[in-house]
Every structure is written in structure tokens, then in C-alpha cells.
């Protein structure tokens, strides 16, 4: 660890933390995929209700995406706002 200044260490660890925060993207990916799959199945069963199904699906997907976005916002804060400087 010799030769690394405190500042560089904090910056480097912030970058690592930002990368780790984006692991949060896994959950929404799986969830949105499941929602889209069930949406497709529902349209297949009842093609007449396509617009209703689509809007419900998009709403659910957007809510499922929130946790992923928390991770993204955390990463952005770590990278650019630099709270630990």
C-alpha cells in the first residue's frame, strides 16, 4: 500500500463502490423480464386487451426498476459528488 496517497485511495475505493452498486441492476433485469414474459403470455391468451396489458406491464416494470435506479444514483453520487473527499 506504500505510495498511494489517501486521496487516491478514496477515489479508487469510490470507483469500486460505484461498480459494486450497479450489481443492483440484476434484480430489476430479472423482474422486468418476468413481467414482460407474463405480459406476452397474457396478450397471447387475450389479444383484445393488448393496450390494457401493455400499460399495466409498463407501470409494473417502472416500479420494479426503482431499486436498480437506487443503485445507479448511489454510483453517480460516489463517482461525481464525491462525499468522502
Amino acid at each position: 500500500m506504500n505510495g498511494i496517497s489517501d486521496e487516491a485511495f478514496v477515489h479508487g475505493m469510490s470507483a469500486v463502490g460505484a461498480g459494486l452498486a450497479l450489481i443492483a441492476g440484476i434484480g430489476p433485469g430479472v423482474g422486468q423480464g418476468i413481467a414482460a414474459g407474463h405480459g406476452a403470455a397474457a396478450v397471447g391468451r387475450n389479444p383484445g386487451a393488448k393496450s390494457d396489458i401493455t400499460s399495466t406491464m409498463l407501470l409494473g416494470q417502472a416500479v420494479a426498476e426503482t431499486t436498480g435506479l437506487y443503485g445507479f444514483v448511489t454510483a453517480i453520487i460516489l463517482m461525481f459528488v464525491k462525499p468522502f473527499d
Binding site: A62, E65, T66, L69, Y70, F72, V73, I76
Partner: peptide, 16 residues
Amino acid sequence: LSLSIRLFGNVMSGTV
């Protein structure tokens, strides 16, 4: 909080 972060996060990720 979640309403604002959802909108901000989506647009911000696109901008980045």
C-alpha cells in the same frame, strides 16, 4: 422520494 429518484435516475442514466 421514489417518484423523483425514478425519473431522475432514468433521465440521468441516459444523459451519462
